[in-house]
Each structure stands twice: as C-alpha cells, then as structure tokens.
C-alpha cells in the first residue's frame, strides 16, 4: 500500500469539500458551509493492482480574505485544482494557486477540475482557456459533486500520475 497526500486547492465555494464528500462518502449536500483551516479525509483506491491510500487535505478556499496557507502543502504528492464552472474568475484563482504551489513545493502531479458540471448551461468559462491549458499538457476534467460525474475518475487519474 502506498500513502499519498493530496491537497484540494481552489477558490471558495467551488466545491472542494463537496468533491471530497462525494468521493469518500458518496454524499452530496447543497448546504454551503465554508471550510476553515483544513479537514482531512482519506480514501483507498486500487490502481493497476496496487493499493493507494489518498490522504485528502481539504483546505479552506482562497478569497480576498483568506489566502493559501503554504505550510499545509509540505509533503503533498498531488493537487486537485478546483474551478467553479459558473464563476470564470475561479479559474484564475486556480492558476494562481498552482503557481504558488509549484513555487513552494515544486512540480507535482495535479488535475484541474471544472466543477458543477450539472450546471453546465450556466457555465461561463471560456472553452479556449481550457484548450490552452490542455495544450500545455494539463489534465482538465469536468466534474459534478452533485451527480458524481467525473469525481472518481479525477482521483484515479491523479492517483495514477502520482504512482508513475
């Protein structure tokens, strides 16, 4: 068994906590309760016959009041950058956070999630931005904590990359 620390990064209310909940407990709650500090969960995945235990650090979302606590990133093996598809500015936040993380702990595997896919009709993210990122080699996934779409897949992809 391999244990890996994974951090959920993203602007506030993008659905980081919801994604972890969905992934770990298969639950979804429409009520929004902003996270403070950090909440830790874990989930095991079998990838290519190996058991991977993800230690999920759900950090408080970034906003104009709260900025990323860099110490939490120490020892992180993978990142999930979460963007709220209905709020284009959260993509910028995600990019900024990525840069900060890289500056702090170096290049590590990560996946960019465009969340709230069930609200796709309300999405305001420019697809060209996404294409540009994909072109840079980024892995971008559409997810929905509400329906569960892409969630398991996102964690699996990140897990596989971390094991590589």
């Amino acid at each position: 068994m391999i244990r890996k620390k994974v951090c959920m990064l993203g602007a506030f209310a993008v659905g980081k906590t919801s994604l972890v909940e969905r992934f770990v407990k298969s639950l979804f709650n429409t009520r929004y309760q902003t996270s403070l500090g950090v909440k830790i969960d874990k989930k095991s995945l079998a990838i290519d016959g190996r058991l991977l235990e993800l230690i999920l650090w759900d950090l408080a979302g970034e906003d104009e009041f709260v900025s990323l606590r860099l110490p939490y990133l120490r020892g992180t093996a993978g990142l999930l950058l979460v963007v709220d598809g209905t709020r284009p500015e959260t993509l910028d936040t995600a990019l900024t956070l990525h840069d900060k993380a890289v500056a702090e702990i170096g290049e590590i595997p990560f996946v960019l999630l465009i969340n709230k896919a069930d609200l796709a009709e309300g999405w305001h993210i420019d697809p060209r931005d996404i294409d540009r990122l994909v072109a840079r080699g980024w892995t971008v996934l559409e997810t929905s904590a509400k329906t569960g779409r892409g969630v398991e897949e996102a964690f699996r992809i990140l897990g596989r990359e971390m094991l590589a």
Partner: peptide, 19 residues
C-alpha cells in the same frame, strides 16, 4: 484510523504554526 490521525496531527501542527 491511524492514517487519518497522523495526517491530522501534522495538520494541527501546520494550523498552529499558521494561526
């Protein structure tokens, strides 16, 4: 869940440092 506990412990330390 020892695995979770240990992560929390370091998280607590981080939190204390941070806060």
């Amino acid at each position: 869940d020892a695995g979770l506990g240990s992560a929390m412990l370091t998280a607590i330390e981080d939190f204390v440092h941070d806060s």
